[in-house]
C-alpha cells in the first residue's frame, strides 16, 4: 500500500502548502523542500488525479495534514461523517502532523467555509476540549490546535487567547500550531502587542509554525484592519516576529501558506528558504552563545 515512502516526521525547516499548480514541477524536479502541507478537505474524493499526484509526492516528502472543516470551536456536535473522512485521509497518507483551528465553520446544518471566531469563556472552553478529545480519540493520534486570526472582539470573553490555549492543552494533551501571521493580524486588529502575545504563548507545546501574507485595510474608525488573505509574501514585521518566536520555540517545521494569487514555484520556494535562513541563524546564535558560556557541546 505505502510503497517506499520517506519517513513521516516533519523536519524543522520551511515547507509549503501543496497546490495543484505545482504538482508537475514537484514531481519532475523533486525540489529540496522540507515538507508539504495539504488541506484534508481537498483529498476526500474516492480517487482521481488529486490522489494520484499526492501518492507520488508522498513517496519523496513528508506531509502535514491540515483540516479546515471540523468546526472544533463550534457549538454543535462534530460532524461524524466528516471526522471519519479526515481519518481516511490520515490513514491513506500517514502525515507527520495533523492540525485544525481554534475556530468554527459549521452551525446548524450550514457550512460557511470560513474560520469563524468564538468568544473565550468557560462554556466555549469545555466545547473545544470535548471536541478535541473526540478528534484525538477517533483519529488515534494527537492533534495540533492553531491560533486564529481575528477581526472582531467578543465582549463576553473572559480568557486571553494564550491562556485559553494553555488550558485546552492542559485538559486535552493536544499540541499547538502557532500561526505567527495570525498573531500579527489579531494583535494589530485588537490594538494589542504581537510580541507580548508570542512572549506569553505556551511555546513548549508548539510543534509547527505557520507564516502567510496579509492584506492591510482599515476599519470605519481608521484603525488598522489586517486581513489574513494568504495571497502574497510574508510581511517584514511578521518575519521579525517569526525570528522572535523561533528564539522561544526553537527550530520548528514552518509552513508558508499561500492560497490565493498562487505564485510560481520559485517565489513560493524562496519564501520557504527564508524560514530556513531564520532557523539556521537561530541555531548559529545558540551555538555561539553556548560557546561563550563554555558549555560542553558533545560532538555528534
Amino acid at each position: 500500500m505505502c510503497a517506499q515512502r520517506v519517513n513521516a516526521k516533519l523536519p524543522a525547516r520551511g515547507g509549503v502548502g501543496l497546490k495543484a499548480d505545482h504538482y508537475h514541477r514537484i514531481l519532475n524536479d523533486k525540489p529540496d523542500m522540507g515538507f508539504f502541507e495539504i488541506h484534508a478537505e481537498n483529498y476526500m474524493g474516492a480517487g482521481g488525479p488529486p490522489h494520484g499526484y499526492l501518492e507520488a509526492i508522498r513517496r519523496d516528502y513528508p506531509i502535514s495534514l491540515h483540516g479546515v472543516g471540523l468546526s472544533i470551536g463550534g457549538a454543535d456536535p462534530l460532524n461524524k461523517d466528516h471526522l471519519s473522512r479526515v481519518k481516511d485521509v490520515a490513514d491513506r497518507y500517514d502525515p507527520g502532523l495533523f492540525s485544525e483551528h481554534l475556530a468554527w465553520s459549521t452551525h446548524d446544518t450550514e457550512y460557511f467555509n470560513d474560520l469563524l471566531p468564538l468568544p473565550y469563556t468557560e462554556v466555549t472552553l469545555q466545547q473545544v476540549v470535548d471536541h478535541i478529545d473526540e478528534v484525538q480519540t477517533f483519529l488515534g493520534r494527537q492533534m495540533l490546535l492553531e491560533n486564529p486570526s481575528a477581526y472582531v472582539i467578543f465582549k463576553e470573553s473572559t480568557y486571553e487567547e494564550t491562556e485559553f490555549l494553555r488550558e485546552i492543552v492542559k485538559r486535552t494533551g493536544c499540541g499547538l500550531l502557532l500561526d505567527v501571521n495570525n498573531v500579527f493580524v489579531s494583535a494589530t486588529n485588537s490594538g494589542g502587542s504581537p510580541e507580548d502575545y508570542v512572549d506569553r504563548f505556551p511555546v513548549e507545546h508548539v510543534q509547527e509554525i505557520h507564516l502567510g501574507g496579509h492584506a492591510p485595510e482599515t476599519d470605519e474608525l481608521g484603525y488598522p484592519l489586517l486581513i489574513d488573505a494568504h495571497d502574497r509574501k510574508v510581511a517584514d514585521p511578521v518575519w521579525a516576529l517569526y525570528a522572535r518566536t523561533i528564539d522561544r520555540t526553537g527550530p520548528q517545521p514552518t509552513l508558508i501558506e499561500w492560497d490565493a494569487n498562487i505564485p510560481t514555484w520559485e517565489i513560493l520556494a524562496y519564501e520557504a528558504e527564508q524560514a530556513d535562513v531564520v532557523i539556521q541563524s537561530h541555531i548559529e546564535t545558540q551555538a555561539q552563545a553556548s560557546d561563550k558560556r563554555g558549555d560542553h557541546v558533545p560532538s555528534a
Binding site: D114, P119, I153, F154, E220, L225
Partner: peptide, 17 residues
C-alpha cells in the same frame, strides 16, 4: 457583543466574515 477597538459593533470588521 461583537465589537471593534472602541467597544462598539463594527460593520467593517464583521463584514470581513
Amino acid at each position: 457583543g461583537v465589537v471593534g477597538r472602541d467597544g462598539h459593533p463594527s460593520e467593517k470588521r464583521y463584514g470581513v466574515y
